[in-house]
Design a protein around this nucleic acid. Structure first.
Lengths: 352, 352
DNA sequence: GTGAAAGCGCTAACAT
DNA sequence: ATGTTAGCGCTTTCAC
């Protein structure tokens, strides 16, 4: 065995006691210099910081958390797959750091892993948890919520019965988009969903069906099977085979829509001249020239902001149960030109 | 029911002392039942777990960390932008959870934020840190490493002088790809890099230039400016303007390559018949029918595995300084057909 | 404004 | 196999 200490070969940690000794004040004063500077004279604070600098002292967040019962860490449970989630993760991480909080990330592939993850989470006494997937089941959520851990569901409107939830206004967005399709002259529209049992799917379909029905346009539903490119690609194969091919396909998500477009084009159809396609989400790729997809752009930073607010406010007082944010309709190349209106303008999705 | 009434939401925390009282054993035995079950009789353990269940007890990881000086948390600093990073994050999160560890995520947009983030990190006494970006500067890395925090650089080969580093074998991959281009009949090749000062760019270019030079093919370098779609799209504009348009464009990353392809096609060129394009990374979108990009596929899970191994082993003994993993050449639709060899086969990038 | 002292909940000797 | 005890590093009364 090595003669060294049992576990880590790190340099011995510098603690507030060391800084106290070095600067000739008490340990309590060192702590105060950091966490309650207003209780310490400027001179003392300077003395402490100098000593800390000399010694390389950094306050220990673990010890602070043990005492204060706050970790300043927010957890997020996010699906491993899906083009959508990157934007969520970076927005969340950024906004939390700006608030002096950190993000503990858990990703899962299959729903089975969620239980395991939720158990691991409980040990860490997080300040809050964001559940960002339609694939987490309500009993799981409920059980976790009962431990007293503040939870907010993200883009999972169905969870709002159990925990506060933040999501884009799926139905209103879908309605606006459907109305625009009618305006563009679509007389037959097919809705391609991801998984029919999710609330996201249902709301988006309902919005479409309602708006279309009001205009005397039928809206059959086709299930792609998952929210993936491949599912959309396969769905396109079925669309091509259809007897009465629709004028337009409303797809439940951008990622599925990319697959639909590629599948249709590979099948020899011209998008948008033979058939129009729309998406939902506003992924960065939607504005890529190869797709130039008409879609509903979610403002992820805004949604995340609301999520964090709900999470933090849930410490004090009754929170709203559900917050819905509008999606912006962005009309692009996947709609036929020549019938546009200036109610809708082409926005840039990327700032660069 | 729902009116818990009071303001503070968390039920008073159940501790090992409570469980001890409930089960009639000492507090230490409760702890042992969880962390060293072999030191406890089966009967006692059962008794403890029952009591814990009744009370809803979960061990407190914060308190454990304070005592044990291990948090079981690994940090990762990752750029906010870039299609590449989602795969890294999910692989890392997954593999860590499988090892009973957690992932604390930090993302940054501009380099200025890195210092702030590194400071925040130090407070958390992480067990290790993965720096996954070419944009973190060596002095910063060095300073952080000197605090005793084990660090591994991910896909940032230049950092290997300072901390252990794991990356794909950029040069060898690029060479193999360049040789294949020559085999396909390319006589003039343009290399489009992201940012010329990064080691990733340099290695990928060097590999290409060397292989091409050995075959008497020149390889000028063009800098896109960033590793983004937009940068590639703009580069395509310049390529179209060129007097002697190259047979093929080797692009430093898939994401840039998507932009190049779209830009070339929008400019009226046929990819691959007018001009061939290759990428590097093996993003999911590379296998989408719209691009079907010939690229070098990094096995992110394997790279992450090595990264984690280095991080954990660095606790005990001298680690390798650098690990390089091969990239798999995947030949797809963005190369001209008719001259293929069965040395290279089309692989499926997606398992679904 | 500063110091002394009592924990936060768990771990790891050291006893028995 | 189990109980006792002394901390881990910080926050927070409570004195002075």
């Amino acid at each position: 065995m090595s003669s060294r200490g049992s576990n880590l070969n790190r340099p011995k940690a510098v603690t507030s006691v060391d800084v106290a000794a070095e600067s000739g004040v008490s340990q309590a004063t060192v702590t105060r210099a950091y966490s309650s500077p207003h209780l310490v004279s400027d001179k003392t604070q300077a003395k402490v910081f100098e000593a800390a600098d000399r010694l390389g002292y950094v306050p220990n967040a673990i010890a602070r958390s043990l005492k204060s019962q706050r970790t300043d860490i927010i957890g997020a449970v996010v699906p491993a797959q899906g083009e959508y989630w990157q934007g969520f993760l970076t927005a969340t991480s950024q906004q939390l750091v700006a608030k002096g909080k950190q993000l503990l990330l858990f990703s899962f592939v299959s729903t089975d892993e969620v239980d395991e993850v939720l158990a691991a989470i409980r040990q860490y006494r997080l300040d809050g948890l964001i559940l960002a997937s339609a694939n987490i089941e309500q009993p799981q959520i409920l059980r976790t919520a009962q431990t007293g851990l503040p939870i907010v569901a993200f883009n999972q409107p169905a969870a709002s019965g159990v925990v506060p939830s933040v999501s884009v206004d799926n139905k209103a967005g879908s309605q606006a988009l459907a109305e625009h399709l009618v305006f563009q002259g679509a007389r037959t529209v097919l809705f391609v969903g991801g998984m029919s049992h999710t609330s996201t799917d249902q709301l988006r379909y309902r919005g479409a069906a309602q708006a279309l029905g009001g205009n005397g346009v039928a809206c059959p539903y086709m299930e792609a099977g998952s929210y993936t490119y491949d599912a959309g690609f396969k769905a396109a194969g079925q669309i091509i085979e259809m007897q009465d091919r629709p004028d337009a396909v409303m797809v439940a998500s951008d990622e599925i829509a990319f697959g639909v477009i590629d599948g249709l084009r590979l099948g020899g159809l011209d998008v948008p001249n033979d058939i129009m396609v729309t998406g939902f989400d506003g992924l960065p790729q939607a504005s890529w020239a190869g797709y130039d997809l008409t879609t509903l752009v979610q403002s992820t930073p805004v949604l995340v902001e609301q999520t964090i607010r709900l999470l933090i406010e849930s410490d004090s007082g009754p929170a709203e149960r559900i917050a819905e944010s509008p999606a912006d309709l962005v009309v692009s190349g996947t709609l036929r030109l020549g019938r546009t209106t200036n109610n809708f303008e082409r926005n840039d999705l990327k700032t660069g």
